[in-house]
Amino acid sequence: MGFQRGKGLIQLFHVSKLYPGGQAALSDLTFEIGRGQFVFLTGASGAGKTTLLRLIFREEVPSSGQILVNGRNVASIPQRKIPYLRRTMGVVFQDFRLIARKTVFENVSYLPRILGVDLRGRKKLAYHALRRVGLAHRMSSFPPELSGGEQQRVAIARALINEPDILIADEPTGNLDPDLAREILRLFLLVNQRGTTVLLATHDREMIQRVGGRVLTLDRGQLATDREVVGTEKPELRLGDEDDLGEEVRAEGSAKDVKDGKDGVEEEGEAGGGLEEVGGERVDA
């Protein structure tokens, strides 16, 4: 999680964003985030955190300056190429943004479906992504049946399903109680440990102090500080810890669900057997 200048996966050069009426949301931001870094983006409400994230995943364009993601200037990407940029990123929001009438499997497997992955492949990918967040046994559940923490983990699984280079999270713990927030943060750290660059916007300074790492602080649209914070109780992480996430992760149950056809898939004809290769794996509770 070291600070690796010069190997910027995300690079900003004098980026400003003015809203109609001349109000400056961001002003002359210059920094870079290296591949594999974990970066907190913090600041008071209205400091420009969300605007900055929206610029990076090209939901908005800067009024001036350049934003390079993987060496490509996102502002000059043609409209039709934006989807391809977004496929290299995973995005997580405070409000989860899950579709209540779709199963967890369907919610998670949007991108593989767009990419034309067949049902068997989608199940496999969804299973792996959900396993990483400890929810493989809830593939056939609907979001309203899940707790807030579980819903956020589903949203993270959706963001991770394509193994993105970058994971962007906008106040992902804002709707969660402290224990769940800690669990979600640990998940982000694990994702980062596997090589994904994580940019996490939060105004929870206590969480930042506890975990530590690189912290970018915005103040009224300007980069106030860019510093390393030493965490007070940095969690011990090891690869494979994803399997420990969640209160009741039952791999055998999830495999059984799939074998019983309870994978939440509406399509006919293709169902069945999608997890044969992974169904035998155990996830310890």
């Binding site: 995943f57 579709i99 991108l111």
Partner: peptide
């Protein structure tokens, strides 16, 4: 809502 998610995950128009 679904359209916004599709756009978010990289669906083309």
């Amino acid at each position: 809502e679904e359209i916004s998610i599709l756009r978010l995950v990289g669906a083309t128009e």
